[in-house]
Amino acid sequence: MEKRVVIKEKKAGLTISDVILVGVLLATGAVLKFFVGSMFNAGMKPNFVIAMYCLAILIIKPKLSEAIIIGIIAGAICQVLPGTPYINLISEPLGTLVMSILISLPLKFKPYSLLKPILGTFLSTLASGLAFLGVLYIAFYAGANVETIPFSAFIVMILLTAVVNAVIVQILYIPVKLALGRGKDD
């Protein structure tokens, strides 16, 4: 008898089920951003689209280029929601880039693998939020004769959104992954 060898093929790109999952999660984030975000009137609103693309990236583990495309799509979705135009087209790809890099780190110790969803989402939300804030200040407030919203108000909103997004993803990660039959972590 010959020894059987199982060869696992490398993934060539996103599968149809991956694309559908990303679409459903981004749509969920858009609905949350629209309805929950409409309760805030502080110049900046929490962005739950970030939580959903972080969850998608954690589950499907896309290549870096695919993650950036997810970020561009997330930024485009944010354009149809109330908010400041165009800035999300910069901030969301940056958030997906951070998440993709963080999940690809070859750290194998147990605390990191258990906390990867919460840490990755928190840091991705911070990166996206700070990029949004930076572009906002450069594009709209630098040299303009307008009354700016205090920087501290934005920072508080970014930190609160990062915490909420991180908790949402940490809670949803394992049930969604198991429901999709994605098995154990790598």
Rank of each mutant, 00 (worst) to 15 (best):
E2C: 00
E2V: 03
K3P: 02
K3R: 10
V5F: 07
V6S: 05
V6P: 00
E9G: 01
G13V: 01
G13L: 02
L14Q: 04
T15V: 00
V19C: 10
V19G: 06
I20P: 04
V22I: 15
L25V: 09
T28F: 08
G29Q: 08
A30I: 06
A30F: 00
G37K: 06
G43C: 08
P46C: 07
N47T: 10
V49Y: 03
A51M: 05
A51E: 06
Y53L: 12
C54R: 01
C54H: 03
C54N: 13
I57P: 00
L58F: 01
L58D: 03
P62F: 06
P62L: 11
E66H: 04
A67Q: 09
I68V: 15
I70W: 04
I70N: 03
G71N: 06
I73F: 07
I73G: 05
A74W: 06
G75F: 02
I77S: 05
I77Q: 06
Q79E: 15
V80D: 04
V80F: 15
P82I: 01
P82K: 02
T84K: 03
P85F: 10
I87H: 08
I90P: 04
E92Q: 14
P93M: 11
L94F: 14
L94A: 14
G95K: 06
G95W: 08
T96A: 12
T96M: 09
L97N: 09
L97M: 14
L102P: 04
I103R: 04
I103Y: 07
I103G: 04
P106H: 07
K108W: 03
K108I: 05
F109Y: 09
P111F: 13
S113A: 11
L114E: 13
L114N: 11
I118A: 09
L119S: 07
L119D: 03
L123C: 07
L123Q: 01
S124F: 07
L126I: 15
A127I: 02
A127T: 04
S128K: 05
S128V: 00
S128D: 14
L130H: 02
F132I: 01
L133C: 09
V135S: 03
A139L: 13
F140C: 04
V146E: 10
E147K: 12
T148G: 12
T148D: 12
P150Q: 12
S152Y: 14
F154D: 08
V156P: 00
I158H: 09
L159G: 01
L159M: 13
L159P: 01
L160P: 00
L160H: 05
L160R: 02
A162I: 09
V163W: 10
V164F: 15
N165A: 09
A166T: 11
A166E: 10
V169N: 07
Q170G: 07
I171K: 09
I171Y: 11
I174E: 15
K177I: 03
A179Q: 06
R182A: 13
G183I: 08
K184Q: 10
D185I: 10
D186E: 13
